[in-house]
Nucleic acid binder design. Structure first.
Lengths: 247, 247
DNA sequence: ACGACGAGTTGTGCTATACGCAACTGGAGG
DNA sequence: CCTCCAGTTGCGTATAGCACAACTCGTCGT
């Protein structure tokens, strides 16, 4: 993939010099100027490079900033939450996940298995339904009302007989979660799987993720939920602080 | 440049989904998984993509953030300085430039021609010598002493008989510029070219750029320097404020 | 005005690099 | 143990990338 490698070099040179012409780039790359031009043209058409106002000079484009925006936020969250998740998993002995809201699903961005965990599903990268997971409920509950209603207008798929499929019941569950500051699920995604989740807040105080503890219902019993939620809330507060929340 | 276009698509998909496996990327790109793997491998080797901890999942890498850092700062400066430069050029009737310090040169990152300007050199993207330009003197004067001395240790090329080539004289000139809050050149880069420059400060109060006004010596006479400097300083203060300086 | 120069841009034939097939490796689960 | 599936590697082929050469356009000097 020589041409891809060269394209990356184009980006690096532009980052270093700010603006460059095609002939200059060709010299630095050690290629013919027509090759340099074509490399830059592709990057230009995709927004990673853009032409400055005059005479064909090129510089890095806004597309790079956009990509970085996606990267930095997520790297911050995964990185900053890691030690907290590890500590919580050790405390509670169950699996700990961090999830974000993405395209109507709760996407798990990190996971730490608890010491009691033998064989648990790897949730990282997986989309889970908002209405049937504790993380999903926290994320749903903390969205502005119009978005919440929009997300809930989708079919509430039944996964088990315990799954909440009635919008009215779900709405009440979410309101209770807001009051309590945590949400839970019991046998709603899978029989025998329980979970508790709390919100993680970003710089502006909005809920940007959910921290959840999940385990088999014979170990993570409902009478433990409140205590687990309290431990998780302590962890979530620390993560929130680490990613910039000052409340 | 099909493969470069595909590589950009890889970055976009990862920005959208956060983490993806090779097989998943191959499906989205519509290519064989060996092709997807090779695309990702090149990007990985250059830091634009990185492997997450487990099972070959990939996500955007820190190299993207680094590239964006170079972009965003410069885009901010060019964008935020534009209206101020236009106003100043209209006020003074001469050419206005913004320059940054890069690899021992003053690099012009934007330029607005004044109404009296007939045919002036396009300085954007061009490297100009620090010691023989007003922007260069401002940038030099406002660097920490070790860097200043290092930059001045290079040969001070003579461009005209008026160019300052003696380090002692240049040092005195820079000290005076610090006291006055502006620097100037008279026939030092080119016979018949005069200029005045003032510092632009960033978020942390450091000088990050210079705002200069240049014109032919028959119009931009030395007795106008102080007034032009005052107008430029007003503009620079506004630019500084726009890019985050709160002093 | 014209011509020279140099930067960016476009067309085209050739071949080297990118592509997909197929096999391999390793981990998870039954 | 075997099966499955995801990631990774080897290799032959053809297509995409490359450089040459020509074109376009703007600037500058006469």
């Amino acid at each position: 993939m020589q041409s891809v490698d060269r394209a990356v070099s184009v980006l690096e040179f532009l980052a270093l010099h700010g603006e460059m012409g095609i002939t200059e780039l060709a010299a630095e790359l050690g290629v013919h100027k027509s090759t340099a031009f074509r490399l830059v043209s592709v990057l230009d058409s995709r927004g990673l490079v853009e032409q400055t106002g005059d005479r064909g000079k090129y510089r890095l484009g806004f597309g790079i900033v956009r990509l970085a925006g996606a990267t930095a936020a997520q790297m911050d969250l995964s990185r900053e939450s890691r030690p907290v998740c590890e500590r919580l998993a050790a405390q509670v002995g169950e699996t700990v996940n961090v999830a974000i809201l993405d395209e109507g699903y709760a996407i798990n961005v990190s996971q730490v298995r608890g010491s009691a965990t033998v064989a648990t599903i790897n949730w990282v990268g997986q989309r889970t339904p908002l209405h049937a997971t504790s993380s999903g409920k926290v994320l749903l509950a903390n969205q502005p009302a119009p978005l919440r209603e929009e997300l809930m207008a989708r079919p509430l798929t039944m996964y088990t007989p315990r799954t909440i499929t009635d919008p009215g019941l779900l709405r009440a569950e979410l309101d209770a979660a807001l009051v309590a500051g945590w949400a839970s699920t019991g046998d709603e995604l899978e029989i025998g799987l329980n979970a508790v989740a709390v919100p993680i807040r970003g710089m502006d105080g909005n809920v940007v993720a959910a921290l959840s503890v999940s385990g088999p219902s014979y170990r993570l019993t409902t009478d433990r939920f409140a205590e687990v939620a309290r431990l998780a809330a302590d962890g979530a507060k620390e993560i929130s602080h680490r990613i910039g929340h000052t409340g």
